[in-house]
Write a protein that binds this DNA or RNA. Structure first.
Lengths: 207, 207
DNA sequence: TGTATCCGATACAGTCATGTATCCAAACCG
DNA sequence: CGGTTTGGATACATGACTGTATCGGATACA
């Protein structure tokens, strides 16, 4: 198994996964037939079954890939924030960091909001798939929480709710707000303001 | 069209809808075939197509029914709360009211959490279906918000976020928390504590 | 340059869901 | 009590997806 071949294989895998994600968002995981996925990727079913055992395995692969991406882009984005930046006050810095997190990792772009919803429900029905999804979400949350808490303590700010609940609250709110924007066709980005309100309410600034 | 016949018809419609809801939760809206729904309801496809034009219309009917139910049970539950009850302090009363709302109407029971997620995604793909779903959610939110705001002002309490955002935040959080309980198999009810934390953080008691 | 291997295409058989068209039984009405 | 209407069952034709088994071409390697 030379590197060249392996590369080619990886390329078709990637194309299949990319096509799958688009279709998962557009038509749902279940409704997206293997054939459709292949067609969109420019292959036939032969390629699919040569690369994946089933649609479930493809989903697993997608989630795994997504998990790594999430960690990488998040770390990257966080690293790009200047240590004690241009921001005026404590809250601004916390907010900035959180916005970065959500922009970078927690995928509020249309496709991912939909796919996330899809995969959550999918995982309910595919027990073999559930652990992978939960693990990815856990790791992402952990990472985000660490970044936020670090900023908070450095700034001497505290929270009005337990730290561990901060991410669930914000994450759930943002995703839902984004979903509403998608469904109602309202201008996107309103979730940012909502998030800011929420944060102003939850963070206690140092005296 | 005598009343008797109409009654019978309504009965089979109800059975079909009930069966559909169970299957929607278990296997998703798309995966639940018309045949399966009929089978579970004790009919054949003939009955289905005699009563509904398509699965989409069935979904519409379910949402409509759900909307009415939601309003009724919510009003009922709210009415059952003693005006200025047994509760010790302001926050308790607000919290109690909100818990009642979520218990009664916002369907944190397993089936409805799943179905809600299903229908949201379904509505993304069935534009004809979307308005109905959004309208139901809007009405329910409105109702809940009115009840909460009334209690707040009566008690002289205020919020740290705009009133209009209170429901989205709480609703999204509770639904997500409940979903997590379902997926992880963790003991149910944790969302209540989370909700209480959230509320304590968001409500400002009168001086 | 010839040969083995790898990878994706093609062909095929089987399953399942859909929607319609027809049929039968029971309830209703005169 | 007999005809008519209503509601649901049955039968059928069709189409789509799945998974496998086989084939062919390109690539790597000797």
């Amino acid at each position: 198994m030379s590197a060249e071949v392996s590369t080619r294989r990886q390329l078709t895998r990637d194309r299949l996964m990319a096509a799958a994600m688009v279709l998962f968002a557009e038509r749902s995981v279940q409704a997206a037939s293997v054939e459709e996925i292949c067609e969109r990727a420019g292959f036939t079913r032969g390629a699919f079954y040569s690369n994946f055992e089933s649609k479930e395995e493809l989903c697993l692969e997608i989630v795994r890939q997504r998990g790594e991406q999430l960690v990488l882009t998040t770390q990257e984005a966080l690293a790009a924030i200047p240590e004690a930046g241009l921001t005026q006050n404590t809250l601004d810095e916390v907010l900035a960091k959180i916005l970065v997190l959500f922009d970078a990792g927690f995928s509020l772009d249309e496709h991912w909001v939909l796919i996330r919803g899809e995969l959550r429900l999918y995982s309910y029905r595919m027990p073999g798939f559930r652990p992978a999804l939960l693990e990815v979400e856990r790791r992402a949350t952990e990472l985000a929480l660490a970044a936020i808490s670090e900023t908070l303590t450095r700034q001497g700010a505290t929270l009005r709710i337990p730290l561990a609940e901060l991410m669930p609250v914000m994450d759930a709110y943002c995703e839902r707000a984004r979903m509403n924007e998608i469904l109602t066709g309202s201008p996107i980005g309103g979730w940012r303001q909502g998030l800011e309100h929420l944060l102003r309410a939850l963070v206690v600034l140092p005296a």
